[in-house]
Amino acid sequence: MELGQVAQHADDLDRAAAFYAELLGAPPTGRFDPPGLLFFDLGGTRLLLERGAPSAVLYLRVESVRDQVERLRAAGHPVESEPHVIFSHADDTLGSAGTDEWQAFVRDSEGNLLGLLSQERPD
């Protein structure tokens, strides 16, 4: 079994399309309006943005949480939790051994909480 799709609430599909295209570095893969469905590809899993979907907390893996938060902050998006290390990988069970797991939370264009994750070698 594998994850095929996750849904996220979006009141304004145009605004959400602009936010996620910028964040993900890729345009939407599909839009059907009506009924109000917008899709992005997340490494083979579909991200569905829909007016009728409940808000979910998505955690997106990025190259650098610190860099991504600064880009989002500069664009005016609220940062809810500053970048911080939540644990270090002692082995390869959840990530590459010897890396730190970084995390931060921001708000997307629709007010949804969005987690950002990265694994980085200690400075």
Rank of each mutant, 00 (worst) to 15 (best):
D108L: 05
V106E: 13
A10N: 08
D123T: 14
A53Q: 05
L116R: 01
R121G: 11
A7W: 12
I86M: 12
A90L: 05
S109T: 07
F105M: 11
L58E: 06
D100I: 07
F87P: 00
L49F: 08
T29Y: 05
L24E: 07
D11W: 12
L37V: 13
T93W: 01
T45Q: 03
H84P: 03
P83Q: 10
L42K: 04
Q103V: 14
A21H: 09
G36S: 05
R121H: 13
S88G: 05
F40A: 10
P34Y: 01
T99P: 12
T45K: 01
G98P: 14
F19W: 07
P28C: 01
V85K: 03
D12K: 06
L48C: 11
R121C: 09
L60R: 05
L114M: 10
T45D: 02
R66C: 07
E63I: 13
G111N: 11
G111F: 11
H77K: 09
P35I: 02
L116W: 03
D92Q: 01
R51V: 12
E101D: 02
N112W: 11
G76K: 06
P78D: 13
E63N: 11
V69P: 03
A90H: 05
F87Q: 09
D100E: 15
G76C: 04
Q68M: 15
H9G: 04
L37A: 10
S88R: 14
D108S: 09
S64N: 09
P122L: 05
F40N: 09
Q5D: 04
D14M: 05
E2R: 14
A17W: 06
V65R: 09
R71S: 06
G30Q: 12
A90T: 05
Y59S: 12
Y20D: 09
H84N: 11
G111H: 06
L47A: 05
D41F: 02
S118F: 04
L117M: 12
L48Q: 11
L42S: 07
Q68H: 10
T45W: 00
R66G: 11
T99Y: 09
R107H: 11
E22C: 08
V79I: 13
L13Y: 10
P35Y: 06
D12L: 03
L49S: 08
L13K: 11
S81P: 00
E110V: 10
S118N: 04
E80N: 12
T29R: 10
R71Q: 13
L113A: 10
F19K: 04
A21L: 09
R31G: 02
D91P: 06
R71L: 02
V57H: 04
H89L: 15
F105D: 00
S96G: 08
V79M: 13
E80W: 13
P78C: 00
G76M: 04
D11G: 15
V57D: 02
G95W: 01
L60M: 02
S55W: 07
A56Y: 00
P54Q: 12
E63H: 12
V106I: 15
H89T: 07
A104M: 03
D67G: 01
F40R: 04
V57P: 02
